[in-house]
Design a protein around this nucleic acid. Structure first.
Lengths: 199, 199
DNA sequence: CCCCGATGCTACCGGCGGGTATCCTTTCCT
DNA sequence: AGGAAAGGATACCCGCCGGTAGCATCGGGG
């Protein structure tokens, strides 16, 4: 019981640290943010952070990894769901866009600070990215076989689709003209067009 | 005469420094590269660099600015050239893609290290980026008026188009399966599809 | 042949920030 | 109530790196 609660509190603290790190890394960059900055923002001190993370780099990995995993999951789940390839691709792109925009800061940090990750963490993430591309390419290939898509080069198309959506982290403003759902839908439509589907 | 030559030599040295900085910033990141690293690679010493650039940050700006300018020019020239909007958009996207891929390292550095630029340099570059978006949006609007394009949301489409092309810096490998021209053509085709043109 | 300017190097500084050794406080169990 | 352990703070270290002051060297003109 007490054990259960301890665990939860530990996880909560860890999470608060990650939250604040995301905010500051996003605003000031990884090397532009000191651990003292993060600690100060949390009202604690640097050694406190070291009781939860072995190093600054490990903290960076902790905020990148899960987000990349979510991206992959979004596409993988949609690809394996029911419906025509067209329907599944729309779902895949829309859901992927939602992850990108909801975790905009994490995604931005990952792409900008990739070079600061440990080789091991980076390798792990790159495995996920390759899987992402494979799943997306597979779905495109299915659509071509089904006669729904018309795609000259599957690999390039997969990269272009993924890129178009990912890129949204650079320009989306949560308080902007379009609501999140509208942006996701618009991007999913544009994605479908690239596959030769009339929208 | 001697004066002329001196200028040229000065420009050449400056350029060599930039070249090496591009290479190292690309491989190791901006903060991951020291001025001593760059100097060593050039077979000179740190003060040598300071006779050509006031600071490390100024060096960063010197390698970002011109590349962003080239991107804008590519799109602006194509937009103002002759032909139907469809033809001009294909040219714009193809030429833009060529800039991105030929100056892949510079583009990558800019997007990753943007936060390290001086506020003034960043402001200047952002002006260029806004102009880029305006020019592209204008071309899209023309195509819609001409009845060639079918675009629900011009702004989102412009961002998606720019993003899809820009993103190529993350995955293009000069020694990869496709030649540079083929990649550019493929991306231009995908771009046109997004506008509702049958390709 | 000597002097002067240009050019680049040697040698240094100083602060910033990741990481740690140690001490204090609070809480809970006996 | 006493004591131990956990959780967190204070205070510190040290290496790295951007930036600079001053010296050496070399070539060209008088």
């Amino acid at each position: 019981m007490a054990e259960q609660m301890r665990e939860e509190i530990l996880a909560y603290k860890r999470d608060r640290i990650v939250q604040e790190a995301v905010k500051l890394f996003y605003e000031r960059g990884f090397t532009g943010t000191t651990l003292d900055d993060i600690a100060a923002e949390l009202g604690v001190t640097k050694p406190f952070i070291y009781t939860h993370f072995r190093s600054k780099v490990e903290l960076l990995a902790a905020l990148c990894q899960p987000t990349i995993e979510m991206s992959l999951e979004a596409v993988a789940n949609a690809a394996e769901s029911t419906g025509t390839p067209t329907e599944r691709l729309r779902r895949a792109m829309g859901d992927f866009a939602r992850v990108v925009l909801q975790r905009q800061a994490n995604i931005a940090i990952f792409f900008r600070e990739e070079k600061n990750l440990s080789p091991e963490a980076l390798a792990e993430i790159n495995t996920l990215r390759r899987k992402f591309d494979r799943v997306l390419s597979g779905l495109l290939r299915e659509g071509v076989s089904a006669g729904e898509f018309n795609i000259p080069d599957i690999s390039v198309a997969a990269l272009a689709l993924g890129g178009m959506i990912s890129w949204a982290y650079t320009w989306h403003r949560p308080e902007g003209r379009l609501a999140l759902d509208d942006v996701c839908a618009a991007l999913a439509d544009l994605a479908l067009r690239m596959t030769g589907v009339a929208v």
